[in-house]
Design a protein around this nucleic acid. Structure first.
Lengths: 236, 236, 236, 236
DNA sequence: CATGAATGAGGGTTCATTCAT
DNA sequence: CATGAATGAACCCTCATTCAT
């Protein structure tokens, strides 16, 4: 819609500044960044501590100085990333005026995030959808559900205010699951494409079909049409 | 719709008979079954060969007698499972008379499969959506896309025949991705629930909301409403 | 000297007929041949039973039917080869009229053997000169010394008859060791060259410098000149 | 000749000090020493990493901390030993005034080395004369030929200066091969004897016939007499 | 803060050998 | 004679982690 949507940040996915801003020492931040990339690319189990410290350009015991263990690195990372996502979604919802705009903002935040930091997303998804025992146990429900809960509430409010009427039989939970599922699905395709996008042509294809405004519009429209009826269709 | 849909097979997920039927020796089948369960639960990297052979109740070298390596077990497994899925989807599409029935059949095949063999699904999803380098490389595109291609063709034919008209701007590829994505999303929730379903109450909740006819109807309806318009709405 | 010296047998090194002639069943012969080649190329320890049976084109238990063990194959092989060498040397000595001819015959038997069956020689040498504990224990002294003893006797007789007078201080044992050592040394070079002789040029070089009559003459002359004085120098 | 020739160093063959002097950490040196002894006694293939670390009194991973692999230990060892030999031979040649003295010095260096560190020699010989595929591949030609080349040059110079005239038909390469071959042959016997020298009597026999000045004289005389004529025979 | 050195436990894989048929 | 299937032990190597400095 507005150009401001189209972020121009480079897609380097370097979270070190963000870590430091959150009060994490620089070296710990480098470790977390290295771990993030490796966990995303190879998974937690297949990533060795040695690889992490090599990638972070530090010595082995330093990791144990800043973190309790390999598991500790993972948990700190997960905690940070889920908090960020939670914050982001809340900002999206609170900052948009009506349901379509809110939905659109949430979707765009994810899509743009996938473009800018694909590895971060890959990591989060592998944690959410991968086997639980392949990584340290942590309360994924707690973290993930908090995010879902905010979206859930968004639909509740829209229905209560009469702004939106779901198709018969559709619960708020169902709508939440569908929306987040559609976004996830979209991002999965983005990630697959980003990985293989060696040629310029492939990148252009990816951008047009998955990272553009049109792609965003398609997604939002599909969801709203499938989900129910809006009081006023102006915003679509 | 018909009661025949509601399979009553127990959800043990034992594929050994299926393996044997496909010409795999019994001991190899036991190995594959054990590996499937462990890979699904812990991921490929976190599963050790020693665990597999222990679970399969065989000695270590037997695995190497029937398979080239741990990697070989994985690949044979993947190959078998993807072939089965491919066959199944084709059967669904060819056996149903119109688009809604086809979509419904595909969705139900997956949902029922998730109920009967959740670990198999968990395994397949962790392979499709997990980090590529966390497991042996194999041509996932080739296997997965073949499945997608059949669905793609299904939409193409429905559109060509005038049976279905997608909303403006929706390509066949987009529809395919949305349908499969929605099914995936649904199954993900099923898997999460199955894992935690220790109480009878929880299981009942899961069955009603995700494994019932109503859940299936909701899904199919959401998809078709979001995707476009049917020539005749009778079948819905 | 005589053309009969120049053997024209192909250098295939196939001992299967010889094994069979010695009363060994054909399959056992094939196993021994395969083992010989592998032991020669990789050494006893680095050769696995599986490799042997694959090379011999038989199944694994067959080896244990004909031989007690991997060690048994080795011992039968060694026994056969040392006996052959012993016989050969005796024939050389008994068949030549004077010391130079005997020395020449012994040297030539070895050189021609190296040409015809380099792997056999490589095997024998690796057994004689390699670490004792790298292979099954067997009485190498017994086998090897018997060979040496015959040569020793040859010198003794030549000295006793006045045909040859060694340089002062040279014992018969010393002469024996020098002669066999020189031959060994020569063969080592042949083996090294045969291994690398991929080009025709290299083969020609090898033939001229190590496998020709001139090379033989040089060797015999060097030995006799170094060892002592002949009563009559006609034969040189 | 001079007493200085007769080294009195104990024949313990402990190279650890030499390794450390060459800048190798002490623990790595202990590993190399243990590996040397085991490789010499059992061969590379028959020696397990567990044996090495047990002999070196360290834990298993330390070997991999200091070396890349079992193969790495072997290569570092070979490199060190060949360099030492090369240096030693050069010192012998450069430090002696005429050809007989040079030949004598080379021979003595080897004989004395065999006495002081028989395992080192056994190892080197098993590498040079054993099957190539029984150990890691390394450029044996490069290492060995460099040594030969220096000896080759020694003969060339002696011939050019008129100091020595080889028998007709003897090339410089032939002389080099004969000399080194004779030395090798001599050392082989030393090694065989050292191994069995459990009794004092046996040791005395060995010393007198293979490690004494007389044995050295015999060897040098045999070689020179066999090889050609010296301008002046004084030095013999 | 930062390091080189060290470790017990376990990783995947292959060994020589033997069983039942 | 000949085979497919099976085994306990051992192979080389790497893991996450910790020590002393």
């Amino acid at each position: 819609m507005s150009e401001s949507l189209l972020s121009t940040e480079p897609p380097n996915g370097d979270l070190v500044p963000a870590f430091i801003e959150a009060g994490i020492p620089e070296m710990a931040a480098r470790i977390m960044q290295a771990a993030l990339e490796l966990f995303a690319r190879k998974g937690y189990a297949a990533t060795s501590v040695r690889e992490i410290v090599q990638e972070a350009n530090i010595t082995n015991p330093m990791l144990y100085y800043y973190f309790e263990s390999k598991e500790g690195v993972f948990l700190k990372l997960i905690d940070f990333l889920f908090s960020s996502m939670q914050t982001r979604i809340e900002t999206c919802i609170d900052g948009a005026k009506d349901l379509p705009a809110k939905v659109r903002a949430i979707a765009w935040a994810h899509i743009d995030g996938a473009r800018r930091a694909p590895l971060t997303l890959q990591f989060i998804y592998s944690v959410i959808f991968g086997p639980e025992q392949s990584r340290p146990t942590f309360n994924i429900i707690c973290s993930h559900e908090a995010m879902m809960a905010r979206v859930y509430k968004m639909f509740d409010e829209a229905i209560a205010s009469g702004e939106f009427e779901p198709h018969p039989g559709f619960t708020t939970l169902f709508l939440t699951e569908q929306l987040m599922g559609m976004i996830n699905n979209h991002l999965m395709h983005v990630l697959k494409l980003v990985e293989c996008a060696d040629s310029e042509e492939a990148q252009a294809y990816c951008t047009q079909n998955y990272l553009s405004e049109e792609a965003l519009d398609r997604l939002v429209y599909f969801f709203l049409a499938g989900a129910g009826k809006l009081e006023s269709k102006e915003s679509l």
